[in-house]
Amino acid sequence: MVRQKTGHVILAALWGDNPVFRQILGICSALAVTNLVLNTAVMGAAVIFTTALSSLTVSILRKWTPRIVRMMVEVLIIGFYVILFDQTLKAYWPDMSRNLGPYVGLIITNCIIMGRAEAFANGNPPGLSFVDGLFSGLGYACVLLCVAIIRELLGMGTLLGMQVPFFSTPLWDRWIIMVMPPGAFFTLAIIVWIARTIQPDKEPKKKVGI
């Protein structure tokens, strides 16, 4: 029973409720850091780290958190993990820290993490919340990596900065536009299009008033 439930949570987090194509959440950083695969991998690791541990912490503390200050507590927990990651990165890999610029700090306002804390960790036991957070982060990181691989391959003709057959030779005319901002929009749009064509939204689109 427990194993079945865990499997269900994992599948939902990776595909059924994937934060990027289903809910179109947290795409600010999905677009900003995906011009190089290496940057994206580090950013993805940061998001996985933060979502998993903050879901765990929110879930552990859920019985002692008064409802009124719940949001504030969640923000503080997320902020704590983001600071931890940011400081570690700055100490051990200063170049990467400079490349990512403010986007590591912006994980705090990444709706995915807050969304998982609110929607899942608040009403579920710590173990399951940790798994949910871990795989939501992983689902997000996978989409980020897909975008990054397409952009770096077409735009620079490399992968992780290494030479690739065909794309790194003069035969391939580099699409510089792919590593510039418009390339990010186009790539993500096409990925969302593919994902939504394979599995259309179950419920008819709700018209949001605002």
Partner: peptide, 12 residues
């Protein structure tokens, strides 16, 4: 196209 409605077309 169906899959492109909403966020897809907005991104483009």
């Amino acid at each position: 196209p169906r899959g492109l409605q909403g966020p897809g077309i907005t991104l483009i």
